[in-house]
């Protein structure tokens, strides 16, 4: 079969027509950058990066659920739960408002480990409900979402949690370079490391291939020797761990935690994945795509913020972008019929 050589211009046009939303937003960013002074600033870039980094971790978590035709509505509440636990355990020993006074001041890495264990548990709970009790993921995670929020409220007594150990907030909000000029937040590297790990898992391991196979055709995957129960369990557990890490980072990033932290993040993560080409009909989705989807979504938020649009309209714009992105994405498949 003859392969047509395309010149650069043709390739570029193809790239633009395939990702119209991404390019529209890039153009919008350039325009906004030109008319608003502070848009192209190191501070803004760093802000965009660290916001994207945390959302990216959550989106990576939920992507496995989406690729296997499931979903995880408990993502945001799991983030909040981990943030509450991390917040409480990372409170300074001498802080008067300490919630758990009997627990001594803890090493922040130990706290991270505890959060990961908690994420594992919530993921396993979702996994068991979905694979053993055969409750559809949408309903299963709708239930756990509410349960987890309730427990977060009980634990935190519905109070905001503050008074963190300095090292916790400083490390996670740390950066390479000077804050006044070029600098890169540590969170960027966290996101990059996880991006690479997930890329390897999705493309180079049996677990990844099994995940795509389940999304492509669950019955066929089982017949082909894929242990679908075990694979799905692992997917929801992995997701739980990612949310927990994101929650741990988010508490420090925000400098405080509460049960309502992370509310609605599951929808942002799902939107990011979908904009990034993860198909809701299963079996399709890539790590770079997810990154672009999340980045685009965060960029959109910053643009509307800089344009001084009434923040309530942000929701309207974001919703429109989600619908538009998916409508355009689906057109690619319809045209091929």
């Amino acid at each position: 079969m003859e392969v047509k050589k395309e010149n650069f211009a043709q390739k570029f046009v193809k790239l633009v027509t395939r990702n119209p939303i991404v390019f529209l937003l890039l153009i919008a960013a350039v325009v906004v950058g030109c008319i608003k002074d502070n848009f192209f600033s190191w501070a803004n870039l760093s802000n965009l990066i660290s916001n994207t980094a945390v959302r990216f971790l959550i989106a990576l978590g939920v992507s496995g659920c989406l690729i296997t035709k499931g979903t995880d509505l408990s993502a945001g509440r799991q983030v909040g739960f981990a943030a509450v636990i991390a917040g409480i355990l990372c409170q300074r020993g001498d802080y008067t408002g300490r919630l758990w006074k009997t627990v001594p001041e803890m090493n922040i890495f130990l706290v991270l480990l505890i959060c990961i264990v908690i994420g594992f548990i919530w993921g396993a709970v979702n996994g068991v409900i979905i694979t053993k009790l055969h409750v559809p993921p949408f309903i299963a995670t709708l239930g756990t979402q509410t349960i987890i929020y309730g427990i977060s409220l009980v634990i935190s007594d519905a109070q905001p949690i503050g008074g963190f150990q300095k090292i916790y907030t400083q490390l996670i909000n740390g950066r390479i370079g000077s804050p006044r000029s070029f600098h890169l937040p540590y969170l960027l590297f966290v996101a990059l490391v996880f991006g690479i790990i997930f890329w390897v898992i999705y493309n180079k391991t049996r677990f990844g291939k099994y995940m795509y196979a389940i999304g492509g055709n669950e019955v066929a995957a089982e017949v082909s020797g894929v242990n679908t129960t075990r694979t799905l369990m692992r997917i929801y557990i992995t997701a739980g761990i990612m949310y927990a890490i994101a929650g741990y980072l988010l508490a420090a990033k925000s400098g405080g935690a509460s049960a309502s932290l992370g509310q609605g993040y599951e929808l942002e993560a799902i939107a990011g994945c979908t904009i990034g080409g993860v198909s809701t009909t299963g079996g399709i989705g890539t790590v770079p795509g997810i990154l672009i989807g999340v980045l685009v979504f965060e960029l959109l938020k910053i643009i509307t913020q800089f344009l001084g649009i009434n923040p309530y309209y942000n929701y309207v714009v974001q919703g429109l972008v989600i619908v538009l992105a998916v409508a355009l994405d689906i057109r690619k498949y319809i045209a091929k019929k």
Binding site: G215, N217, A220, G283
Partner: peptide, 12 residues
């Protein structure tokens, strides 16, 4: 129904 995984590649 239980053979091919339609959206995946021949290699997969």
């Amino acid at each position: 129904g239980s053979g091919i995984m339609g959206v995946l590649s021949v290699a997969d």
